[in-house]
Design a protein around this nucleic acid. Structure first.
Lengths: 152, 152
DNA sequence: TCCATTCGGTTTCAACTTGAAACCATTGCG
DNA sequence: CGCAATGGTTTCAAGTTGAAACCGAATGGA
């Protein structure tokens, strides 16, 4: 084994993102960041992850431009980790994952949970894929593989 | 180290799905499955993954009910791997990941690529999150963390 | 002042996972 | 029959992960 395979230079726009976030912890860190967590200790307590692993993951997320460090507002010597715009772009990935989880990973006997509109407290709609003209598309109607074309 | 941490029993509907697909290969296998691949060899050639790893991943995806094995239609002794309904539910995760990849992982100088409506060849729309009443929601307006409530 | 704690990590080291390559069992075919 | 292709499993070295120990810089009390 030379090294764990990297998808970084893969010619696939699903593989490349996975190189940045495709491990067991990164998306959970991003999720916590969406929930307002910013400090090393907050992530550590929330996730229960070993500190060396968290340290490595945060470094990787910063290196990929998903999080950035900012000086702590309380004037302490430490810094905080906040989502960049690129990081906030992961929102849809998390919503998709969450809705899939709601549907297929709710334990039997567990109360059914769902994402809610914080304004009304009502469940949000399920994600849908739409064509340019507004038609709803199902899996067979769009391809996940690359399709190269110069934008006109 | 006891074992790699499992999120299987985590009380979080983002963590639990990650336990099933949160490694470097599983989502790529699912992506290929959406593109019609079914045979061990097809996945192996497409991904360039070691056979033992592919074998373990396929077994895991089957165990999680994301893929299922069906007898090969050509009457050979082998079987094929096809997406279950649960597996097809990952479509939105892949679309979200792909759109994020299109936006932030297109190499400079690379032709811009995007997912297209196979009927018209035109790009599909970006995913959006909507409230029950149709209002478009941005990250702060819905929470990824669990919110438990009995559906009425 | 001085000891104790918290915060944010890094280091260490054993166990576990990954990947390349070799190996193996069936079928397919000439 | 001989030989290649398919679909794996086994083996083993190297890489990754995680628990725990350690560390330095700031607080925080007594």
């Amino acid at each position: 084994m030379v090294k764990r395979t990297s998808h970084q230079s893969a010619d696939c726009l699903i593989a490349r993102p996975l190189d940045a976030i495709g491990d067991w912890w990164s998306l959970l860190i991003v999720r916590d960041a969406f929930d307002g967590m910013r400090r090393f200790g907050e992530f550590q307590r929330s996730l229960g992850v070993a500190k060396n692993i968290l340290s490595a993951r945060l470094r990787n997320l910063v290196a990929h431009g998903i999080l950035e460090t900012v000086p702590a507002p309380d004037g302490s010597a430490h810094h905080e980790y906040v989502l960049t715009e690129k990081g906030r772009g992961l929102f849809y990935v998390l919503v998709a994952l969450r809705q899939w989880g709601e549907t297929y990973f709710s334990g039997p006997g567990e109360p059914y949970t769902f994402m809610v509109d914080t304004r009304t407290g009502r469940p949000i709609r399920r994600l849908e894929v739409h064509a340019e003209d507004g038609r709803r598309l199902v899996p067979g109607e769009t391809r996940l593989a690359d399709f190269r074309q110069q934008p006109d």
